[in-house]
Design a protein around this nucleic acid. Sequence first.
DNA 1: GAGCCTATGTCAAACTACTGACATGGAGCA
DNA 2: TGCTCCATGTCAGTAGTTTGACATAGGCTC
Lengths: 143, 143
Amino acid sequence: MEQEDFGRLVGYQLKRVQAVLRAAMDAALREHDLTTPQYICLELLDLRPGLSNADLARDAFVTRQSMNVVLRNLHGAGLVTRPATAPHGRALPLRLTEEGAARLKAARAGMLAVERRLTAHLDARETEVLLAQLSDMAESLSG
Amino acid sequence: MEQEDFGRLVGYQLKRVQAVLRAAMDAALREHDLTTPQYICLELLDLRPGLSNADLARDAFVTRQSMNVVLRNLHGAGLVTRPATAPHGRALPLRLTEEGAARLKAARAGMLAVERRLTAHLDARETEVLLAQLSDMAESLSG
DNA sequence: GAGCCTATGTCAAACTACTGACATGGAGCA
DNA sequence: TGCTCCATGTCAGTAGTTTGACATAGGCTC
């Protein structure tokens, strides 16, 4: 029934948690007509207006091409603005529209609820340790 | 530069680790001409021969439809066998071919190396705690 | 200024994955 | 038996993602 020693791999449990988390986020976002990548994109643009497509791709851990598709949809839905010409280089600074900010605000409550459910059994100190461990794991694999 | 309080969300760090992990696995598997979903599928079939498409989908945390595509590719590559008729119900029990088992064995070493890099900075006790926490997080979100 | 390197945006093709839908086989119950 | 219910396999469509490739803009060195 259980995956014996396979389930004892951190990589496998990470995939499991991420799959459940993604499903929970998608479910919470569905009522706001947003997908998880779209939400992440809106959140990043709210935090740091003027980011370019390439900036967003780096921060969301996806390729420029993937983010470009997400932005095309967001722009088509009227949630973000893209200038027609680049003020410097080729980077096009993106910003939330009023509707984009409103949709983000409405969706954020559901996302925070998911985060609380995720960490429901962890106290503040355990959460700090976990965040540090996850960060170290990412760096030891990429660096 | 950094994501301020956004990076302090466990969900964000999970996504980050999973993205880096997936990239590391893909890189290690590329020399064996396997993708990550294909590898997971082979590993599960090695552990429990005779699993059906739906069984594999559940254990790999994807839909039946997604796993069906993976299996179609694996079958086309001659790494797994599917009976033409179902011995019971509609479930088709799958098994590794000799070549499938050989490819899995060759790829497994690289995967274990990735797992060791992932947990390089954790001792045995910390790893146990982390596994338990990840498991709890998955259950508190899905249950 | 000329040439080289990097970063950026974009196009194309393929893969992975999802939702929605449908038909089929088995089990359980009236 | 006949009916419902559930699990399974499968098809179609859509979204997200990737790799590979290309052209363009700026910064850099010479």
